[in-house]
Amino acid sequence: MTKYHDIAIALAGVCQSASLVPQLANTGNCDRELYYLGMRSVFNTSPSSTLNVFGERKDIQSGLKLLVSVLGSEQKENADVLRYTFGTLGITHKLRNQPETLNDIGMRIQRVASMHPEMSLEEVATHSDELSYSLAGIYSDIISPVAAKIKVMGKIEYLQNTLVQAKVRTALFACVRAAILWYQVGGTRWQFIFSRKKIVQAAQELLTEY
């Protein structure tokens, strides 16, 4: 795989979790499988490859399709996803310059993970609510203060629900995890201007190969 395949995979991870935020904010629910995949990725701090952060190729298909759409001609249709994607990329950009903050996040993640030795999808699904509150706590305590808060738009009856709030923060945390990966594999914000076609082509090749 080329550098742009890794960049596309990481960005797809951001988009995939970003797509869960408007679902939660407007309906109180979201795609469970994608939510569990995003949550599990937060705990995968020592991956063997870029793809391994999310699992297998099939686990990132939704994000790759979304990436092709948001970087192509369907930006208006995916305006919310694009906003949450760029919002979390911005937060991550600031986080990267704060090694102590990143270390604190890592320690908190390990503390939660120590109570769940096998962080499989089944384990994540079984303890979904508990893990959501734990990750939301890390997001609120450490990540949120780093930059201006991302304004989540939705229906008030869902946005006031504590579990929905926790899941929204967890989804945003998963976006940040994927965004950190994106920077690690050579992603830069200039690529959205000068390398958009290369990223879209890489994403389409990953979809075709699957």
Rank of each mutant, 00 (worst) to 15 (best):
M1D: 11
Y4S: 01
I7A: 01
I7V: 15
I7C: 08
I7R: 02
I9F: 04
I9T: 00
A12H: 03
V14D: 04
C15Y: 00
C15W: 00
C15N: 04
S17Y: 02
S17M: 07
A18F: 04
S19V: 03
S19W: 01
L20T: 03
V21E: 01
V21M: 14
V21H: 03
P22C: 09
L24G: 02
C30K: 01
D31Q: 11
D31G: 09
L34M: 07
Y36C: 10
R40I: 14
S41P: 09
T45I: 11
S48D: 14
S49Q: 08
S49I: 11
T50F: 01
T50K: 02
L51D: 03
V53F: 03
F54H: 02
E56V: 15
R57C: 11
R57D: 12
K58S: 15
Q61C: 12
Q61E: 15
K65L: 09
L66F: 05
V68H: 00
S69H: 10
G72F: 03
G72L: 08
G72E: 04
G72H: 05
G72R: 00
S73T: 10
E77N: 11
N78C: 07
D80L: 13
V81Q: 00
L82C: 10
R83G: 03
Y84N: 11
Y84W: 12
T85H: 13
T85Q: 13
F86A: 06
L89C: 06
I91R: 06
I91W: 06
L95V: 12
L95N: 07
Q98H: 10
E100H: 09
E100S: 15
T101Y: 02
L102T: 05
N103D: 14
D104N: 13
G106N: 14
M107C: 08
M107A: 13
M107V: 07
I109S: 03
V112M: 08
S114V: 01
S120K: 13
L121Q: 06
L121P: 06
T126G: 02
T126E: 10
H127M: 07
H127W: 10
H127E: 03
S128A: 09
E130H: 12
E130K: 14
E130R: 14
Y133F: 15
Y133W: 09
S134F: 15
Y139K: 00
S140R: 15
D141F: 04
I142S: 09
S144G: 06
K149L: 08
I150R: 05
K151F: 05
V152M: 07
G154D: 01
Y158D: 02
Y158V: 00
L159G: 08
N161I: 02
T162K: 04
T162C: 05
V168Q: 08
V168I: 15
R169L: 07
R169P: 03
L172A: 05
F173K: 00
C175Y: 01
I180E: 09
Q184M: 11
Q184L: 10
V185L: 01
G186E: 10
G186L: 09
T188S: 15
T188G: 06
R189W: 04
F192M: 13
F192A: 09
I193S: 07
I193K: 07
S195N: 15
S195H: 11
R196I: 02
K197I: 12
K198D: 03
I199F: 09
Q201L: 15
A203L: 06
L206Y: 05
L206P: 06
T208V: 11
Y210E: 13
